[in-house]
Simulated assay, not measured.
Amino acid sequence: MSDLSGIFRGPLAEFRHVFAGEGDLRPMVDGKSILAPEFLESLLSQYASVYPKPDTVAVATQWSKWHFSLLLPPVVAALLVAQHELPVDLSDTAIVLSDDGRVEAFRLSGRGRDITAGDVSDSLKRLIDGHLAPLIACLAAVTKAPEKVLWSNAGNVLESVLKECGTWLAPDHSGLANANRLLTRRVHTDGTRNFLFEPVRYVKHGNELIRRRKICCLRYRLPSLSLCKSCPLAFSRKNSTGDIRS
């Protein structure tokens, strides 16, 4: 993998740890190994041990949230802030795994390529087709987790990343506008369904706008975890003071 230090600097420096360099001696597996059902089952079994009362589907959705939260922030930030597309297709990406079966880092096959703001939509589509779609399909097949929940997990992270990038970029940044457009259209420009359409909504509560996921991640099925702050269930359950649960 080529040196990425020129890309991950300034506000992006915090993401350097996500990518394993050539001198990284940690054991790695091919990214496409995750798409082998037996191998993925073994990873999820390891991760399930983290929870006192694991639920197979809920474990899968939490595992996916970790994966997307590691992958999407640096990849999308690189697209928008550094105007650089990283090669993260699962077929040519190596992966460092943690002891509990989660992805800990990625080793890329190369440095990728510089892009323009007009290329953002195509770059995001390649990210979807080469990484998100095959992983989500495999997770759903192995665990019976609803694909719409897994896509919602990815969309929830993506929306957060775009909000963060918006604090670094000019309000009229065309690349950011192109990326945000992905979350507002039901189909891609090629006519295929956009599973990342509108993952979150902002609802009014008093004088505030509250961020709410459109689809619950099923976290409530793991008794050791509380509801997340953007959970749609939290907005239908109020405590005795009338406050929304976090």
Rank of each mutant, 00 (worst) to 15 (best):
E41F: 09
I115C: 08
T116P: 06
V75A: 06
T116C: 07
A145K: 01
D190M: 09
G242Q: 08
S49P: 00
G155I: 03
D190F: 08
V59C: 03
G118R: 05
M1F: 09
L183W: 08
V187F: 12
R113M: 07
R26C: 02
S45Y: 14
K204Y: 11
R113C: 00
A94P: 00
R181E: 10
V157L: 10
E147F: 04
V76M: 01
N180C: 10
L79F: 02
R111M: 11
E147K: 09
W151L: 02
S91G: 14
I7N: 02
V57E: 07
A137F: 08
A133I: 05
L233P: 02
G118C: 04
A13R: 12
C231R: 00
R107A: 14
S2L: 09
S226Q: 14
K204F: 05
L40G: 03
R16L: 10
P87V: 00
L12F: 13
S230M: 10
G206M: 09
N194V: 06
A170V: 11
A141W: 01
T167P: 01
A140N: 07
T189K: 13
L12T: 05
W66G: 10
D190E: 14
S33Q: 13
D172V: 14
V161M: 04
L222M: 07
G242Y: 12
A141Y: 11
C231W: 00
N156I: 09
H131L: 09
E38M: 14
S224V: 11
F68C: 02
R193S: 12
A140G: 08
L90W: 06
D100C: 03
A140I: 08
L124S: 00
E14G: 13
V81K: 05
T116V: 10
D89Q: 11
